[in-house]
Each structure stands twice: as C-alpha cells, then as structure tokens.
Amino acid sequence: MLTVPVRQLGETERGAVEKLLDLDPIASAQVAEQVAANGLSWWRAEGRIFGYGARRRVESLCWFGGHLTPVLADAPAIAAFTELLAAEERICSSIVGRADAVLDLWGRLSPHWGPARDIRPNQPLLVTDAVPEIAADPEVRLVQSTEVELLLPAAVAMYTEEVGVSPFAEDGGIGYRRRVTDLVRTKRAYARFVDGQVVFKAELAVVTRRTAQVQGVWVAPEWRGRGLAGPAMAAVVRDALARVAPTVSLYVNDYNAPARRVYERCGFRSAGTFATVLF
C-alpha cells in the first residue's frame, strides 16, 4: 500500500495541473501539449498523469504514456512515483525531463524496469524569444502535403541516427509515417530541398501556448560542415516565433558540439539540463 500521497489525476483537477505546468513551461512542454489536447480523462488522453500532494494542492506531476516525464518532482515525489510505477508494466519508450528528476527516478526504477538501452544524462535545455541575428536561409520552408514521401527518408535517417533504432522496426513504420504526415499537415515540418532531396529538416514536435519545441534537426551527411545549419535553424526560429509561440526551445546532447554552436549562434540560452533514458 502506498504510504505517500500520490494518485492518478482526473479532469476535475485540470486547473491545478495547468497551474503547475505553467511554473516550468519549457521543461513541461511535452506534458502541457498532451493536457491541452486531451485533458486528463484517461479514455481521451494518450497516457495517465499522476499527482503528488494533498488533494487540491498538487505539488508534482508524472506523465506516464509513450514517454515517462516527471514535472517539478523533488526527491519525496520521485520516491512516491517510484512506489506506484514499480508495480506497473513499462509501456514507455523513454524517460525524459529535467535531469535531476529523471536520473533519480531511473535509479529507483531500474531494478524493476531495467536495463536501459541508452542513458543520456546531460542534455542542455535551451530557449530563445528573440529573432536570430544571423540571416535566415530563404530556401528553408514548410513542407507541403505533396512532399511527405520526399521528407520521410530524411526523417527515418534522422531518427535512426539519433535514437539508434529504426522507427520502422516495431510496426513497419505505420505509426511513424502517420506522425510525419501529421506534422506536415499541421504546418510544423520544415525542410530545404535541393534537386528533390531533403538536405535540412526540423520539426516543431511540441507546441504549447508558451513554447514551440524543435526536434528532429538533421542535415544530410554530404552537406555537413558547409555552413547550412545556422541559417536553416534561423529560418525555423523566425517562423516559429512569428507564427506559433512566444518562445522556441529544444534540448541537445551535450557531446554534439557542432549543434550546440549552431544554437548559440541562433540566440538560444540555457534553461537547465534534461536527461533521457531510452529503452
């Protein structure tokens, strides 16, 4: 039996959840997008959200779906979430969020859920609310619905390079193709095409009223080191700030020095550190 105040939250507590998410809007963007789209009713949402704290005074959150994401979770909250989650079958493909909470959570859950396929303990979380000073690449634009098949090979290459497995491995790519198509349909996918081939791509994978989170940034191998990424990212940031959200955010592996230099040139500043545990 649980000895700490943790429980699954429902729609009646949506207001409290939204106030908590607003306390850390950049780090909690993935959860905030889900709550805004589907609420907290388990039959509508793509996951469950657990709360730590007395009723009507929720202090911390934990989203449990395709990803596991703790929000504003200190050590007592992590201990409470662990007690609940340790008895659950792992359904998530990753644990992602602020590094201190993610690494504490994984340290406690690993005897029950381990092993992990990869652990990335230091991923700078970055944000900007200013138009980049460097010139934007005029050839970077939103991908059109007729160009999904052109975008898909680049998206698969990026995913495989970044995550270490193909997105086609589990269901033949049905879910991933649907995701890429949806990003294009909602005007959240950017690319630069040269002779019908994608040489740069990026997506606004998460969008809330507070931020647009960029993911899937990729440059074709033969185009790397040619100064393409900076102006291309500047084009993405400019459009996202003008059209989508008041800030643009992302997180990056600490060892990816070229990408970090690009983001610095585009005006991104630190908003903390993320960590990711991949299964």
Score class of each variant (00 low, 15 high):
Gly225Tyr: 11
Gly53Gln: 11
Met1Ile: 03
Pro111Trp: 03
Leu72Trp: 00
Arg55Trp: 11
Pro153Cys: 05
Leu61Asn: 06
Gly225Pro: 12
Trp43Gly: 07
Ala257Gly: 00
Val244Pro: 03
Asn122Val: 15
Asn38Gln: 11
Gly10Pro: 14
Thr186Phe: 02
Glu139Trp: 06
Glu139Pro: 02
Val17Asn: 09
Tyr159Cys: 12
Ala54Thr: 08
Arg117Lys: 14
Leu68Tyr: 10
Phe279Glu: 08
Asp129Met: 09
Pro121Cys: 05
Glu11Arg: 10
Val206Thr: 15
Ala245Cys: 13
Leu109Ala: 12
Ala232Glu: 02
Glu162Thr: 06
Gly10Lys: 08
Gly216Lys: 08
Asp74Arg: 15
Asp171Phe: 02
Trp106Gly: 06
Val156Leu: 09
Ser41Asn: 10
Ala235Trp: 00
Cys62Met: 11
Asp171Gln: 06
Phe193Glu: 02
Val4Met: 06
Gly196Val: 01
Glu222Ile: 05
Asp118Met: 13
Val4Cys: 01
Leu40Asp: 08
Gly196Arg: 09
Thr69Pro: 02
Arg192Ile: 00
Thr211Lys: 00
Gly172Asp: 04
Thr208Tyr: 00
Asp100Asn: 10
Gln197Val: 06
Trp218Val: 07
Ala191Cys: 11
Glu46Val: 06
Trp113Tyr: 14
Val163Leu: 03
Asp239Ser: 14
Asp254Leu: 08
Val35Asn: 05
Ser60Gly: 04
Pro115Leu: 12
Arg141Ile: 07
Cys266Pro: 02
Ala242Thr: 14
Asn38Arg: 14
Val237Asn: 02
Asp129Phe: 09
Leu151Thr: 10
Lys19Trp: 01
Val207Thr: 05
Phe200Ile: 07
Gln215Tyr: 06
Leu250Ser: 02
Leu142Gln: 10
Ala75Thr: 03
Glu147Asp: 07
Val127Phe: 12
Gln215Ser: 08
Ser110Thr: 11
Phe268Ile: 12
Glu18Arg: 14
Ala234Gln: 07
Val143Cys: 01
Ile49Ser: 01
Leu85Cys: 00
Ala16Arg: 05
Leu183Pro: 03
Ile49Asn: 00
Asp195Gly: 09
Asp74Gln: 11
Glu133Ser: 09
Arg14Ile: 12
Lys19Ile: 04
Arg261Phe: 05
Leu61Trp: 00
Ala87Trp: 09
Asp129Gly: 15
Tyr159Asp: 10
Leu126Cys: 12
Cys62Lys: 00
Tyr159Gly: 01
Arg179Ile: 03
Ala169Glu: 15
Ala205Gly: 15
Ala99Asp: 03
Ser270Ile: 06
Asn38Gly: 10
Pro167Gln: 03
